[in-house]
Design a binder for these strands. Structure first.
Length: 259
DNA sequence: CCCTATGTTCCCAA
DNA sequence: CTTGGGAACATAGG
């Protein structure tokens, strides 16, 4: 269930592994994933991330847009090992193959996806500006947590990191987005930049099933301060971390020091 | 059987 | 037209 740091990790590893390589064959194993065609013989010119989308730029200005959604994973196999259960597509290269594994079947693979607007949205690893957030939040009554999860506002933040960001900036996830002060938006923007950069350096958060391109766990789960830590003491104030529901999603905060 | 899951999209009401 | 809330999508695991 990858968020920005996990997708960025895959992006960096894909650059090392398939940039400049020619696709020999694309095999769709589950047509629900998508149905891109005529990619054989095409060279991977570059790999980029925008929000939670992975973009593989091919010859003739074609771009493959991959979104892993809830349970999608990418795996590199340099030998002809068995395909794992729930493999949804396989892209074969001369030196190995790229497999998309996705038990819940929400992932999407689209050629030249016109619905991917993410390139127009601020990406926190490139720039997360407090004044932009504050302006867009003007008049919004949704909880700030839901606001930050809105991919039309900021691209790439998901449920783990939004909880961590709001805890580090000491803002309650239930606050109305339009009610935050300039100082609070500054703290959130800085927390977002710092946490997402560090989580990327850690190659993501392996709470349950996240693995990188080579099947390795990330390390950021050792740095989480609230997510999944219900009942444990807050490292900042000693308060009790709780789990509540906001927007129907599990939300972790410290009621004592997040206001 | 129940509930939960790191994401998005659709529908409906305000 | 915009906003926000909830259900839906499909599947596995506790």
């Amino acid at each position: 269930m990858p968020e920005l740091p996990e997708v960025e990790t895959l992006c960096r590893q894909l650059k090392q592994t398939i940039m400049g390589a020619v696709i020999e064959e694309l095999v769709i194993l589950d047509s629900k994933l998508g149905h891109p065609e005529s990619l054989a013989g095409s060279c991977v010119r570059s790999v980029e991330r925008q929000g939670k989308f992975l973009l593989m730029r091919l010859d003739q200005n074609h771009i493959l847009h991959l979104h892993l959604r809830m349970s999608g994973r990418l795996l590199w196999q340099s030998h002809a090992d068995e395909l794992p259960a729930h493999s949804r597509c396989m892209i074969r290269f001369p030196h190995g193959r790229l497999v998309c594994v996705d038990p819940r079947r929400f992932a999407t693979l689209v050629l030249n996806d016109p619905k991917d607007r993410s390139a127009l949205i601020p990406d926190p690893l490139k720039a997360l500006d407090a004044s932009i957030l504050q302006n867009v939040a003007q008049g919004r009554r949704a909880p700030v947590k839901s606001f930050l999860l809105d991919q039309a506002v900021v691209a790439g933040i998901g449920n783990i990191y939004v909880c961590e960001m709001l805890h580090l900036s000491a803002v309650s996830p239930a606050r109305k987005a339009g009610s935050l002060s300039q100082a609070e938006w500054r703290k959130i923007a800085k927390a977002g930049r710092d946490i997402l950069r560090k989580a990327t350096d850690c190659r993501g958060t392996s709470i349950s099933d996240w693995r990188d391109l080579y099947g390795e766990k990330g390390e950021y789960q050792h740095h989480l301060t609230v997510y999944g830590r219900e009942g444990l003491p807050c490292a900042r104030c000693g308060g009790n971390i709780r789990r509540i529901a906001i927007g129907g999603r599990g939300t972790y905060d410290c009621a004592a020091c997040q206001s």
